[in-house]
Nucleic acid binder design. Sequence first.
DNA 1: CTGAAAGCGCTTACAG
DNA 2: CTGAAAGCGCTTACAG
Lengths: 342, 342
Amino acid sequence: MSARQRVTVEDIARACGLSRATVSLVLRSSPLVHPATRQRVEAEMKRQGYVYNRAAANLRRRVSNSVALVINDLSNPFFAEFATGVDEALGGKDYVTLLGCSNESPQRQLQVLNSLMEHHPAAIILSPAENTDARDIDRVVGGTPLLVFNRMLDHDSDGADHDFLGLDNRGGAMQATAHLIERGHRDIAFFGGHANSSSCQERRQGYHDALKKAGLRARNEWLIESAPTRVDACARSETLFAGKTKPTAAVCYNDAVALGLMLGLAHHGLRPGIDFAVTGFDDIPEAAMSMPELTTLSTDPRARGRQAAQLVLQRVEQATPVSPANIVPVRLVERASSSAPA
Amino acid sequence: MSARQRVTVEDIARACGLSRATVSLVLRSSPLVHPATRQRVEAEMKRQGYVYNRAAANLRRRVSNSVALVINDLSNPFFAEFATGVDEALGGKDYVTLLGCSNESPQRQLQVLNSLMEHHPAAIILSPAENTDARDIDRVVGGTPLLVFNRMLDHDSDGADHDFLGLDNRGGAMQATAHLIERGHRDIAFFGGHANSSSCQERRQGYHDALKKAGLRARNEWLIESAPTRVDACARSETLFAGKTKPTAAVCYNDAVALGLMLGLAHHGLRPGIDFAVTGFDDIPEAAMSMPELTTLSTDPRARGRQAAQLVLQRVEQATPVSPANIVPVRLVERASSSAPA
DNA sequence: CTGAAAGCGCTTACAG
DNA sequence: CTGAAAGCGCTTACAG
């Protein structure tokens, strides 16, 4: 068992007849050490099964090689992909990922952040829970570099002292809406999402922009909220046709909602892509595998994860100034679900 | 900026006119400290914005409050749910999750483990990449408690010195197959998965068990491999009907494969659940939302994650002996996809 | 209840 | 190229 003492630099030094300092230099592959000495030391480390204690090293050097990653909902493939990208990029730079899940609870999010802060991460990447208050976050994060992903925080002062990485929600929704208009639709709904979330507001804005540009307007009964999930979207799909004027197409908040809506349409005897046009947002893997395949906006969450990690490490290592608004463009991917005629 | 020195126990002690030891006792809420003193100390910590340095504390105490979680594929909802469960249970016990993704690469997995080991985690939870060799893992893991999830390792000696948590793959596949037999099917395929993975072997075994019990047997042409993904399953679905005797039903390796197969069937003009019966494995959220809904085996990956965390912490905190085979039963969830007549 | 001293495993100047 | 000493921020005995 690990009852026997852990092997330390001291043990290696003694076995080789050297001082700890020399072994330490070997560990950090300093050019000051004679190659022969290095070899002896490395052989001895292997022999004794030495494993570096980076926490101790970090303590002395007053640095950190961890980054805290706090995710609102890991069971959502969009965020799971994002997390994968973050971990990949951090690992490539010899950083380690401290994971925390908030499960969309602001309280739990604060707990998680507090716990992770005790490990003094070099930086924090936060994909915030809904209704997260910027002031709470700033308080616990202190001076640690912070990058917020995807959603803006409530009550965030303009001169926010953190990085932000988000999608071009407005532009994306505008593309999707314009695409439906081009195909002849005039009665277009915006379906799903929580109207108080920043991403939903931005997407609705893009939808309105496109309508306005075409001389159209949205009826209130076509602005329908739902949880951003398949299940809830499916359950609420009938609401679309509750008003007097029935829409012929819907721009959906995201792919999960769009897939749920398509299912709901089928339950009502409407064939998505034939009787009713639908667009999504995110391009999750399922979008290309649904029936019909889903027209959507490609966001490449794994690449976003890598990008987030890069931004935040750049900030840590070069103390660059914050870039409060990195807005990533999104691209329309045209598939069968939007091919229904008006 | 954080250019100013970090606040330490020393600072708090000096400000309160106490020694570091006393402040340390407050931090660990020792009953030895006078309540009034405690109050003063806590107020001062808040005032100065003190944040505990757990790495330093752990170093001195020779303990760890981190657990390494290494996942083969986080973009698979099954593992994402598992990770969520692990993090939830660890967080509840004041442990922190060190995340690493191997992306199904055994080499990357070793790199990731090596990097995480330098943080001396209290334990390791590993959902191994395919073709992981137990000897490689044992070498890097050393004496740290290890729990392997879901897949057994290659070349694992019987008296493995690690915990294992897995699903009852054999029993589950047996249930699914028996269910199809009960519905009158006699020509049943086993579709998808890599035949060299332990979980696929076990599931195929259960399939054979059920056939044998009913006096049936599998044709070789009905044993079809695929990557365990929707895309590949869809691509290979025609293989099912390439032989002389066409099956009327298929037990699928997992839900992703089953959903891909259903899509492939539709492309061939076969209506799943009406013209052909299909079962899955896992009960991912999509299973209840597909058309038709998917009959499958419920595994509750988030609960498995909590269970894995519990097992491993129990091992850490109470030095319990390893339990090499925790096999979790799975439950058949009957839905429309398996209702096609023979 | 509180203080002075030592130490966790490493690295950092500073001499040589 | 190598060694002796100090210190990162905390906790642990041991006195008082």
